[in-house]
């Protein structure tokens, strides 16, 4: 499929695995904070960050939202995105990256202030003084 990020359409319902050095859970708002070399994988996509706050749905304890801060890298297939922070809302299937955003799509490189990746439509919207090079497809 012609997807802006990753090889194929990212299925946001796939299971999410989280590895981290340590974990602290807060009972009252049902969130957990992983710190230290956090690596989150979902299907093809791997998200790594220094700290990730995970939000679970009250009902079925499924992860609805991941809030990564302290420098985030997302990799999927040949594409990669870097930013200061990333807010992955799994239900909406969108990832909002902010702060020195860098998207590499194969050999195409794009930079900007913030970027929204829509995993369902396979599009990415970059804002703030964006810069890229126009490499033809061949």
């Amino acid at each position: 499929a012609d997807v802006a990020f990753g090889k194929s359409r990212q299925d946001s319902n796939l299971p999410v695995e989280v590895e981290a050095d340590n974990l602290s859970v807060s009972q009252e708002d049902g969130t957990a904070t992983f710190t230290g070399n956090v690596v989150i994988t979902q299907g093809e996509m791997i998200l790594s960050a220094t700290e990730v706050l995970v939000v679970y749905a009250e009902t079925n304890k499924k992860i609805t939202r991941l809030l990564a801060t302290g420098g985030v890298t997302m990799v999927s297939g040949v594409d990669a995105a870097e930013a200061a922070s990333a807010d992955y809302s799994i239900d909406a299937g969108t990832v909002l990256l902010k702060g020195n955003v860098l998207l590499t799509q194969g050999k195409n490189v794009m930079t900007g202030d913030q970027m929204t990746i829509n995993l369902d439509t396979g599009t990415a919207q970059i804002g703030g003084r964006v810069k890229t090079t126009l490499q033809s497809g061949d």
């Binding site: 195409n108 794009m110 970059i126 804002g127 964006v130 090079t133």
Partner: peptide, 19 residues
Amino acid sequence: PADAVLVADSLRVEGRNRL
């Protein structure tokens, strides 16, 4: 130089082919 540089206020990336 190899490629042209593009700068804009916003950039929409649709798939791998369209900007």
